[in-house]
Design a protein around this nucleic acid. Sequence first.
DNA 1: GTCAAGTTGGTATA
DNA 2: TATACCAACTTGAC
Length: 468
Amino acid sequence: MQRFSVPSPSSYRLNPITSMATRSGSLIWFRKGLRVHDNPALEFASKGSEIMYPVFVIDPHYMESDPSAFSPGSSRAGVNRIRFLLESLKDLDSSLKKLGSRLLVLKGEPGEVLFRCLQEWKVKRLCFEYDTDPYYQALDVQVKDYASSTGVEVFSPVSHTLFNPADIIEKNGGKPPLSYQSFLKIAGEPSCAKSELVMSYFSLPPIGDVGNLGISEVPSLEELGYRDDEQADWTPFRGGESEALKRLTKSISDKAWVANFEKPKGDPSAFLKPATTVMSPYLKFGCISSRYFYQCLQNIYKDVKKHTSPPVSLLGQLLWREFFYTTAFGTPNFDKMKGNRICKQIPWNEDHAMLAAWRDGKTGYPWIDAIMVQLLKWGWMHHLARHCVACFLTRGDLFIHWEQGRDVFERLLIDSDWAINNGNWMWLSCSSFFYQYNRIYSPISFGKKYDPDGKYIRHFLPVLKVYI
DNA sequence: GTCAAGTTGGTATA
DNA sequence: TATACCAACTTGAC
């Protein structure tokens, strides 16, 4: 069980630093974790290093425009998420510049680019946040092998999540808990509950000689091959750590709201002022630290007489994220029906025309179509709205494979997260975690309940304005 | 074997 | 407007 033996961040700190006399400096490789605050990889890279190379690698497959895709974007991501990522990188670059550093942007296949950097710059340390997604699990093995074979010390702390999923799986006897309540019991309190987080710096080490590796500034959308008129109604959510911290501060400024938050009671049709914090895209890219978010919530809970609890509370939402990260990490083929031991095997229908109608917001059910248009235009919709369209596509109405709905969400959501997206699609299709298939979200009455005047539907389906 | 499980719709009742 | 309750379901945890 090699993949579960990941040391905790604290044990890394105790390791002696083994530097080679001929090497100097460190390289911090940003992937997620696009922030300065509470970033242990950045902290370790900057400590005791005279020079530091902050690197982000643009993978053209992920970032560059693919005109053959079903919506504007790259082959793997919608343009809303690409833009969110670019904004996050610009903000990170600007924060680093204020501290005497900058973001070095390189283009190419990430592993190959990184090997070239390590060769050229002869750093003694490579630091990057540990990542449980299969893409990084595979890539990071190669990178770690390469680094250790060339005498580079690797520091890869767990800081994207509150818990190390491997720890929880180990505590549970080698398998992830499959119910939320048992997850809570096993997980207990995260270590960040009592630790102090490094939130800011006076300065960071300067960058060294970058050689001839094709370093650039953070590119614009146009430079990646997108036309600026490609999407008229952009997502209203701006990327970046600064925006994330502002949004968090504002979201939790109303202590009574935080204390009384109950996710199921939110209004999925509220779009001018969403019923939730909309912190998910910032958590996805690590523009905000989940551990800082956790501490902010605990400080508020301490100050109020009573507050809601998981699973429905705001803290409960952070823990849902941990739950899915843990089950995803401990389940082979988590993103597939076949070969996935926790997924019910269901003979789903093949229907490309219906799938396309669902995807493009053309089912004829205004409530369903408005939600899908919000997804296309904004890359975000309320959690319950996601439930409605996922139920509709799978067990509720069309009986189409959850993997096909998952693909559409994965591409279009600005907060698209591998573990959470796959977990929720299995949940909604009654393939795993939840099995009460007789509980169906009505594509008509559910919308009427929350949007009786059709304000939401009219906003995202303006063609209906004349009728309702 | 028993119990509990975040997030349904519809109806009855206060 | 809010709440209670029923119908009819499977599975994980213990």
